[in-house]
């Protein structure tokens, strides 16, 4: 029994089956990888898990609860969050504001509290600002905290997206190509960072990546996807030695 279970997950767009009958388990506290050629349906699986797309058929169980076709914000509330392949930050806000906004979960003062500036507002707001500052420090963004997100270098934008996701204190973090556009050096750093935050925040992580070094280096379990269907699953060595995978995917690379 994993923390996340996909049962016969299927998604079609018109005639195209983007994801077809995928079964997969993510173990609690593990780092799992999701790989496959372009257009294999990896991002679509993330979109299904996070409620961005409606599931055509199948079930998604998280932490023992059925979360299929729930509203995205409710899924986030239940402890899953993600980053996007094509970065989606609050572009015109500063780094600090991006993280602070996402911290909203850890406060519960009402609109009246804020309009009247009641003590509850002040106390919780202070807590939020501290939390945001801490996250920014952990992610090494402190020196850029007042920069507009859109003006950050690409690699740091990806980092900020992770910081923003962590602000929710999720149980499961989905990373969609976190190393895209990074040089080997940055990728190396990112790998370290991912392992670090996993320990620090007690996270389960599922990563989509094309950088094989990264995937093979940190994942305990990997699922390979091709044309929307599961091709193989197992440890990095299993997958690397799998014939069909080599043919369909690694061979091509």
């Amino acid at each position: 029994m994993g923390i996340l279970e996909l049962h016969g997950l299927t998604k079609t767009f018109g005639g195209l089956t983007a994801v077809g009958d995928v079964n997969f388990n993510v173990e609690k506290d593990s780092i799992s990888g999701l790989i496959g050629p372009n257009g294999a349906g990896k991002t679509t699986i993330f979109n299904l898990i996070t409620g961005v797309y409606k599931v055509t058929s199948g079930k998604i169980i998280f932490d023992g609860k059925d979360i299929t076709n729930k509203e995205p914000y409710l899924i986030a509330e239940s402890g899953i969050t993600r980053t996007f392949q094509n970065i989606r930050l609050f572009k015109k806000l500063t780094v600090y504001e991006n993280v602070l906004t996402a911290c909203h979960y850890n406060a519960n003062y009402s609109i009246f509290d804020s309009v009247l500036r009641l003590p509850k507002f002040r106390k919780q707001e202070k807590k939020l600002t501290e939390q945001a500052a801490e996250l920014i420090e952990i992610m090494g963004l402190e020196s850029r905290k007042d920069l507009i997100a859109n003006n950050l270098p690409y690699g740091l934008q990806r980092r900020l997206e992770i910081a923003r996701a962590l602000a929710l204190m999720p149980k499961l973090l989905l990373l969609d190509e976190p190393a895209a556009g990074m040089n080997p050096d940055e990728t190396e750093q990112l790998m370290k960072l991912i392992s670090e935050i996993r320990k620090r925040f007690n996270l389960t992580i599922l990563i989509i990546e094309h950088h094989m070094d990264l995937i093979m280096g940190i994942c305990e379990n990997i699922m390979v996807l091709n044309f929307g269907c599961k091709l193989a699953e197992g440890t990095p060595t299993d997958v690397q030695n799998d014939k069909s995978v080599i043919e369909a995917y690694l061979g091509v690379e």
Partner: peptide
């Protein structure tokens, strides 16, 4: 006062990027 609170920030987030707002709950 409303804008400078978590509620206001959430509204601004909705303005900036709806999907990302959903994803942060």
């Amino acid at each position: 006062n409303l804008i400078h609170s978590r509620h206001g920030r959430n509204m601004i987030a909705v303005r900036e990027e709806e999907l990302a707002s959903q994803i942060v709950g």
